[in-house]
Design a binder for these strands. Structure first.
Lengths: 226, 226
DNA sequence: CTTCCATGTTAACGTAATGTTTACACAAAA
DNA sequence: TTTTGTGTAAACATTACGTTAACATGGAAG
């Protein structure tokens, strides 16, 4: 897998399923987190901001469909992939699930291998856009191969972390990156760093670039603009 | 459906299936083309460059998997969506299909409605990546990915709570949201805030937007309209 | 007309979130 | 070894967000 490992949150009330799915996806290199009911799923989703959420439909507290609707009604979860996982193999449930805003639907009894394949497929489709090409935004050019940033043909020397941070933000100009996302993409999920660390790096990048192209969205994150 | 209609190529050797699938997807506004074996599928794919190809696996001349492999090996078909449609519901086939580069897999006997939902879901997923899932109501555009509101192409800066509030209301224009609903969606269930808090935020949004698009429904709640 | 209730309006305040600077551990280069 | 630069933490400064409280308004009921 290229880049940092993707975060997957799995919500199911059956411990067996949690364990099997966790094990098999974990083996593939994904970072797995679990929840055992609807409320916990929402709570953990807000903490972690996973890349993918796998939701059982029949869960205590809140059903998977309800969880999906609640998350989808919030701006921060528009990009999050959602797969429903359920014993209800009937038509109506599937359609309802997909129209609620889910990206896929897998019926129980599921084979772990099939689920893994589907998860891989869904990430492959999303990922293949993000190649290691140079980014040109406005008069700023970012070349990940040469590890070089030029602004108006003037070279700017950035440290590794600074560069990775800038590259991430600039890879999708205008898009807001949550602090969680930045942490997991640039630093990795297992690393624990203080709250101010991101700010300090943001500041260094801002300083070195000289141009104000990184905008703070308070309470949310940062975004890059020309 | 927004924008140009999507082209879908369906390849299956059973005329009944071709007809049913064509009819149901055609009703959704897609442009449908058909092929009755593997070779014809490849040929037509090269002519048409469809956005999505639905491939039966058991076909004369070439199987769906072979067709998929051949097309995927060409740069021009890297981005083309592929769904397998087959009677083989066994695990091995599904995995093989997905790992060949398919984006989804639907087992026969299929329900037309389920297939339509899956097709819609897969296009939604791709569309959102390109265009962003912004809400457009009248001349107001709300982009949750960029955390940005534009009204007549003029940017409006909203704070987090203000944005979340507006996003919720605008996600269903015309629908009235009860104060309780707003509280639980935007603030969360456990948070307790005073009565006037919602009003103040509503006011700030109204003020910043400049246009009167949030209507008070006295004794009930608020709704968003153009 | 008055009363009452729901909402509108405004300003002020506490604080959470971010900005800034300095210091230091650590690794790589000299 | 020293030197240099990078990444992180800690300590503080600063900003503006969210909330409240106090009061205004307006419409419906009596």
């Amino acid at each position: 897998m290229e880049g940092k490992p993707k975060k997957i949150l799995i919500a199911d009330d059956e411990p067996d399923i949690l364990e099997i799915v966790s094990y098999n996806l974990g083996k593939e290199g994904y970072e797995i987190y679990t929840a055992k009911d609807g409320n916990e799923a929402i709570e953990r989703a807000k903490q972690l901001h996973p890349d993918l959420i796998i939701l059982d439909i029949m869960m205590p507290k809140k059903t998977g469909v309800e969880v999906c609707q609640i998350l989808r009604s919030q701006p921060a979860f528009q990009d999050t992939l959602i797969i429903f996982l359920t014993a209800l193999s009937d038509e109506a449930s599937q359609i309802k699930g997909l129209e609620t805003g889910a990206d896929d639907y897998v019926s129980k009894p599921i084979s772990p291998k099939v689920l893994v394949s589907r998860v891989n497929a869904i990430f492959r489709r999303i990922n293949n856009k993000e190649t290691g090409k140079s980014i040109q935004v406005g008069n700023i050019n970012i070349d990940p191969v040469k590890f070089l940033v030029t602004i108006n043909d003037l070279e700017v020397i950035l440290a590794k972390k600074e560069f990775e941070l800038l590259y991430l933000l600039a890879s999708r100009p205008g898009r807001v990156f949550l602090r969680n996302e930045i942490l997991s993409q640039v630093w990795g999920n297992d690393v624990i760093v203080g709250d101010r660390t991101i700010d300090v790096h943001i500041r260094k990048v801002r300083q070195k670039l000289g141009v104000d192209c990184i905008t703070t969205v308070k309470g949310v994150g940062y975004k890059f603009e020309a």
